[in-house]
Structures are given as structure tokens and as C-alpha cells.
Design a protein around this nucleic acid. Sequence first.
DNA 1: TTAAATTATATATAAAAACATATATACATT
DNA 2: AATGTATATATGTTTTTATATATAATTTAA
Lengths: 92, 92
Amino acid sequence: MSKIYGIIKERRKTLGLTQKVVSEKLSIPQSHFSKIESGLSDTRMSTIVDICRVLELEMTLVPNNKIRVVRALMEDSYARMDKPAWVPDEEA
Amino acid sequence: MSKIYGIIKERRKTLGLTQKVVSEKLSIPQSHFSKIESGLSDTRMSTIVDICRVLELEMTLVPNNKIRVVRALMEDSYARMDKPAWVPDEEA
DNA sequence: TTAAATTATATATAAAAACATATATACATT
DNA sequence: AATGTATATATGTTTTTATATATAATTTAA
């Protein structure tokens, strides 16, 4: 579970957001967000989903035999990319 | 978020487990698990992680621009597969 | 079609923790 | 030095959870 919080922290930093900014978007105190991000609060699912929304992440559940593939897919991928992975050809 | 609960239910059925069995592995009442699985309880992160452990799933967070790839990867993949995706060559 | 099994829903008391609200500051990083 | 994060404190509310049980409703098996 610490991986989840690690992802949140990494992503937040990658997006260049401070805890203060994120907490404002979530309308919660910075102190509360700090505890969530560090795993010191066993927070609700809905709170994590809200955090994901702010950080442009989506939560999912992966079968154990696929997790390594999924992780490899996402290596260095918490950086925001404004372009989709696939760009359609332009039609003349 | 309803997708998460949908995955849990699908996976549980794929593994052929009843709510009763899963709830026993989790040491919680079946009635409580029913509410969690149906999204009627905004449960804690740790509870979902425990459920994932029983169902051989792992929670992760995916950047929005990768979610479609990840989902495609996992299509029809909530079935348990006893073999890893990659099998090492045997050494003579 | 019926019976059995499973799931959803209800009820109750009580404890625990998250959360809301607020603020401050120690500590760490830039 | 300024900024960001972690930690502390306080009161009060809400929800989850624990514990227990029952049964209505639905699904599955026979």
C-alpha cells in the first residue's frame, strides 16, 4: 500500500504541485493531505479517488500476474504528457 | 469508482468464490463485505488492499493517458492464470 | 419447478478512526 | 531566507467498523 502513496507523491512532484495547492483543490487542510500522502491516515477510497482526479491519475486493480507488465508500461510515466500515446494520421 | 467495485465482483466470481468465503478470509461479516462490494460503504484503503490480497489483485494508479492501454492489457484478464506471462528457458 | 445457496438488506450497541474546523510551528528543502 | 512539509493541538461530527443476528430477495443447482 505504501506504493500507492509513493505514486501520489511522485506524481504530485512531477506535476510541480505543492501539498498546499493540491489540498486547496481538494478543499482539505494541508496538514490532512500530508498525513494521507505519507500513509499516516488510512483514508477512504473516495478520498484517494479525489486525489487521483487532481493528479490526473486513475485507480485500477491489476491481477497479480500482470502487475509487472503494467508497471513496466508505466515506468517514468507519471510525468504528464499532453499528447496521447497514439496520434492519428492527418487526412488530406 | 464503481469500476473498482465491478472489478472486485468480477474477479471474485471468476475465482469461483462466494461472498461468504471471501468475508471469512477477511474476517468480516458477509453483510459488511456485500456493502463494500456494491459500493454502499466508502471503505478504507486498507480494506480494499486486504480484499485485493484475497483476490490476487494489486491496486495501482495509472496516469490518465495510459489507462486505455492498461485496460486493454487486462481485458478478460481477471481470470486467474497459474502461469506467469513469461516462462524462463530451462537450462540444460 | 423446487430447493438450496448466495447475496442484499435490516436491526442493534459500541468503539475507533477519519474527517471537519482551526491554528501553530518544528522540521526539511529549496 | 523563503518555501514546503510534517507534526502538533483542540473540539466536535460523521462514518466505518466490530460484533451479532436475522431474513428478504435473488441466483444457482438439482
